[in-house]
Design a binder for these strands. Sequence first.
DNA 1: GACACCATGTAACGCGTTACATGATTGC
DNA 2: GCAATCATGTAACGCGTTACATGGTGTC
Lengths: 207, 207
Amino acid sequence: MSIFIYIILYILTAITWRMNMNALGYALLSMLMRKPCSGYELTQLLEVFWQAKHSQVYPLLTKLEQDGLVTFVHVQQTGKPDKKIYSITDKGKALLTQWVSKPSAPPVIRDEFLVRAYAIGLTDANTAKRLFHERIFSFEEKVAFRKVEIERMQKEHGSELEQITCRHFGRYLLFQRKLKLEEEEIAWCHWVLGLLDNAKMKVNEKK
Amino acid sequence: MSIFIYIILYILTAITWRMNMNALGYALLSMLMRKPCSGYELTQLLEVFWQAKHSQVYPLLTKLEQDGLVTFVHVQQTGKPDKKIYSITDKGKALLTQWVSKPSAPPVIRDEFLVRAYAIGLTDANTAKRLFHERIFSFEEKVAFRKVEIERMQKEHGSELEQITCRHFGRYLLFQRKLKLEEEEIAWCHWVLGLLDNAKMKVNEKK
DNA sequence: GACACCATGTAACGCGTTACATGATTGC
DNA sequence: GCAATCATGTAACGCGTTACATGGTGTC
């Protein structure tokens, strides 16, 4: 009885091994669900997830194509280099669909700034403030950019955007999430700056 | 004239090359500023930054020791394996101090769940909801844990904790940040669940 | 009897980054 | 003239993960 289960598991393992699909592979497939794209465009769009480099994207697309998960057509352009436009296949769509409802691996987050924040006591209050102001500045840029993107989406697609059936629904969710988290990061920086100011005032009081 | 600059740059490069310090190295140094620790303990404490494995921590500590940035003493224990307690040296402290005020590399964030959220349109509304409920559950656990840690710190160190001079200030900042961001993540999930419910209601209206 | 915790290490492998390589067009 | 944008690729290297290895104590 359970032999069948082992056979199925074996086949699934074999497929997984042959395809060696990692999260980036699925990220590319899910991007291609929205619309066909070139490798170059995918590299830019991937920014909603994380910043993968083209040197990783191009070879992976070749691999996905070999595994029959995507196909591409050559497109000749004038004044610009030629490109390959990739589309997801039925096989790719099936693989992605069965992957979506599986449990997710815990997120990987590595942020140098947090180490600096941790060791902030090694600097004077002014340097500390400078570091947090710089952090705020870089995140405000991100927030501004994110807001533009969200508004553009809302103008283009209207209330349809907030429907699961909309092709851009997933992208919209991620934009909103990034915006929230980036704003929260800024709020945290201001809170820290407040603490640093309190400390300064107390020093002045002592004088 | 500019020859001096090149010599300085060369020396700095040579030092950097020999020490080959990455963010994890500085993370360990900053942990050791708070108190001497074993490699095992450092691996647990590193959780505030990101989850490094012991297989990375132990060899790195050996390297830091060879570079004279940390020292260790053997501590024999009964009922438990022996351990090495590492402390930061003056050289390590100096290196860390000059690193803290340098600009930070952009954070690395890789989260599989976001790919699933992006491709959520491939599943039915119920599966989608299940995925977001699971996400909420795992983040609520983190929030609860974080709150316990913060309260423990506040009880132990009182209002001194909110002073840059406190040895635990950095750690406190990071705990508060994680808490805020984790709560924001949960809020986002609830927002998404709201959208998914709206969609369902509209389907019902059509019936 | 199995599992989790404490504690330290090594080896192999795969993923991701940096750098090398090419080339036409548009804007400052 | 220089940099940026579009567009695709390869090669080398280092970081980080998984797995292998050991072994005593305490808990279910």
